[in-house]
């Protein structure tokens, strides 16, 4: 489904990604961990072209999306992303946030878009908040609206960029539950997170990134119990 070949990203002199190679099957849930500054988020952002790769190739379903002149809007429609800081549109209600892009990008009628937006919000447990503005929602609710907003575009792949890092501890579970049920439904997911419980339960594969390269690739079980790379070991000891 996703194939990444020798991906490099530089910001000026800063070499953030130093040759990432990766393959992801359909319905696979990949969990990315690593210290801050290791390039996890940059890698994620390269996958939906929010960042332009400096070198290397990314293929999605066999189509190279890093080719110059590709229709980035088309690519992004198929790849949903959820951000750490929600980035909800503050001037729109929850329903407006979720139903806007399907109307403008997929050219759905307002009625159809709102109908399916309500279904999405129902799915993330917010059917009673459809007319609330983001400022009236808790962090956990905002993040669930953000997930619903991405899902409303009916993506093939979902990217999660530390989506629970800005949440109060008691609000994290609701968001993780939504992500878990999404994983169970067969969505292909790349998740940057430090929620080890989620990685263990929902992750099919884990990657430990440090200093712009993949240090270790393993099953969640082995990653936690029997890490191969000493740096993985050190990192896990520090956060667990």
């Amino acid at each position: 489904m996703i194939k990444v070949v020798n991906l490099h990203k530089k910001f000026g002199d800063l070499h953030v990604l130093k040759g990432i190679n990766l393959k992801l099957r359909k319905s696979e849930v990949l969990v990315l961990i690593g210290p801050s500054g290791s390039g996890k988020s940059t890698f994620l952002r390269c996958l939906n072209l929010l960042e332009e790769a400096t070198f290397g190739k990314i293929f999605i379903e066999g189509v190279e999306i890093t080719k110059p002149g590709i229709d980035v809007n088309k690519v992004r429609q198929k790849i949903g992303i959820v951000f750490q800081l929600f980035n909800l549109f503050p001037h729109l209600t929850a329903l407006g946030n979720v139903s806007l892009a399907p109307q403008k990008v997929l050219k759905m009628s307002k009625k159809d878009a709102e109908h399916s937006a309500k279904e999405m919000l129902n799915k993330v447990g917010l059917s009673d908040k459809i007319n609330s503005f983001p400022a009236q929602l808790s962090g956990g609710q905002k993040q669930r609206v953000a997930i619903a907003r991405a899902l409303a575009m009916n993506p093939d792949i979902m990217l999660f960029d530390e989506v629970t890092s800005a949440l109060d501890p008691e609000l994290i579970k609701g968001v993780l539950d939504v992500m878990k049920s999404l994983a169970l439904s067969g969505m292909t997911m790349v998740v940057v997170t430090h929620e080890m419980g989620f990685a263990r339960e929902a992750g099919d594969r884990m990657i430990f990134m440090d200093d712009g390269i993949i240090m270790e690739e393993n099953t969640p079980e082995n990653m936690f119990n029997n890490p191969q790379n000493p740096r993985t070991k050190k990192f896990l000891e520090a956060i667990l």
């Binding site: 939906n48 929010l50 980035v72 809007n73 088309k74 992004r76 429609q77 790849i79 949903g80 992303i81 951000f83 800081l85 980035n87 909800l88 549109f89 503050p90 001037h91 806007l100 892009a101 403008k104 990008v105 953000a146 907003r149 991405a150 575009m153």
Partner: peptide, 26 residues
Amino acid sequence: ERGQIEASRSLGMNFFQTMRYIVLPQ
């Protein structure tokens, strides 16, 4: 905020749609 534009673009909306529906109203 940059995040507003990123959120809009990552939903597949183009530059003008992002301006028209996200940036300018705010």
